[in-house]
């Protein structure tokens, strides 16, 4: 089973990379971009039998830093 873990910065946490990307988009002449937040996508290939709790624990223990980041687990049909 394919699992996608979307890691994003929590609201209110300043995102210097997102801001730089925003400026770059404006520099390229793209108007109407209100805000940019950069995150991370991690794709896992896991056993079909894996428990949801285990996936959750992977995120909390390693894949996301819970001080500054949120995560969302998306199961993708293999």
């Amino acid at each position: 089973m394919k699992v996608r873990v979307h890691v994003s910065l929590k609201n209110g946490v300043l995102d210097p990379q997102g801001r730089a990307i925003h400026h770059a988009l404006e520099g390229l002449g793209f108007d109407g971009v209100n805000d940019v937040r950069a995150g991370r996508l991690i794709e896992l290939d896991v056993a079909d039998t894996i428990a949801d709790e285990a996936l959750d624990e992977m995120c909390r223990k390693l894949l996301a830093n819970m001080v500054i980041e949120n995560y969302r687990i998306e199961k993708v049909a293999a």
């Binding site: 300043l14 210097p16 990379q17 730089a20 830093n65 001080v67 500054i68």
Partner: peptide, 17 residues
């Protein structure tokens, strides 16, 4: 140390990139 939970907070990319 922050990642290990021995100190609070986190160290992010420098504001000036």
């Amino acid at each position: 140390l922050t990642e290990a939970g021995l100190l609070p907070g986190a160290l992010m990319r420098n504001a000036g990139i």
